[in-house]
């Protein structure tokens, strides 16, 4: 990795857009891929495909991190984003009975305004960024992103924030659990009705009498 960095530093004078180094070319290509995946994931009508294209986009991004010599972050990205977050999203899709096939109404009525706002934001940001950083170059040679370097700096001066982060994760965990509990306590009333008839709670109803039928079906929804 440091050879590349050294090459970078050797020829500082002849820099310019017109003579991109190898890393830049790869970066651009992967960037285009990421962008394409993102656009498709946002634009596609099939919801599951959208999630899968998200995976592609995030994966490409991980490669970009590697190109930027942020090796540890890249793997963390792959691990957590691709691993857990997208999976969670897929679960979310399944749990909310998202239609598998092509669903015509994937976009809300607001899409033209949204497109307009997005394009305006893109235009503004790009012009701003290009105007601001036209003459600045990243010196990739420093190889600062390796696990050892990142780990050293993390455990030297970022310990406290991470502890706070862990508390946050815990809170999020509990919150998620509380929210998504399926409200057992919420339906005691119908069950009280059953108690009067003397049948034990939760016994598999052998004979599907209409009275028994309604409370159980109610319990499932």
């Amino acid at each position: 990795m440091n050879i590349l960095a050294a090459a970078g530093s050797l020829a500082p004078a002849t820099r310019g857009f017109l003579s991109p180094t190898g890393a830049e070319i790869v970066f651009v290509l992967v960037g285009l891929a990421v962008l394409g995946a993102a656009v498709i994931s946002v634009g596609t009508r099939q919801l599951v495909h959208a999630a899968l294209w998200l995976v592609v986009a995030l994966g490409g991004l991980a490669i970009e991190f590697l190109l930027l010599t942020a090796e540890f972050v890249a793997w963390v990205q792959v691990l957590i984003y691709l691993g857990s977050v997208v999976v969670l999203v897929l679960f979310g899709l399944m749990l909310t009975k998202a239609p598998i096939g092509r669903s015509p109404d994937a976009d809300s009525g607001n899409r033209w305004v949204a497109l307009l706002v997005a394009l305006a934001a893109a235009g503004t940001l790009v012009t701003l960024v290009v105007d601001a950083f036209r003459t600045s170059w990243i010196d990739l040679g420093a190889g600062g992103g390796s696990a050892s370097v990142t780990g050293a700096s993390l455990f030297r001066n970022w310990v406290l924030p991470f502890e706070a982060l862990s508390v946050l994760l815990l809170a999020a965990l509990i919150g998620a659990i509380v929210l998504s509990r399926s409200r057992q306590a919420a339906a005691p009333k119908p069950r009280a009705g059953r108690l009067r008839t003397g049948k034990p709670v939760g016994a598999a109803p052998a004979a599907k009498s209409p009275a028994a039928q309604s409370p159980s079906s109610e319990r499932e929804s």
């Binding site: 970078g8 820099r15 857009f17 991109p20 180094t21 890393a23 830049e24 970066f27 651009v28 960037g31 990421v34 962008l35 993102a38 656009v39 946002v42 986009a57 970009e64 190109l67 930027l68 949204a114 497109l115 706002v117 997005a118 394009l119 934001a121 893109a122 940001l125 790009v126 960024v129 290009v130 950083f133 036209r134 600045s136 170059w137 990243i138 990739l140």
Partner: peptide, 19 residues
């Protein structure tokens, strides 16, 4: 590497997200 590339890419990606 030129800083503009990641910055521009981030900006575009952000806009796609906004959309």
């Amino acid at each position: 590497m030129h800083l503009a590339y990641p910055a521009v890419l981030a900006a575009l990606l952000f806009s796609v997200g906004v959309y």
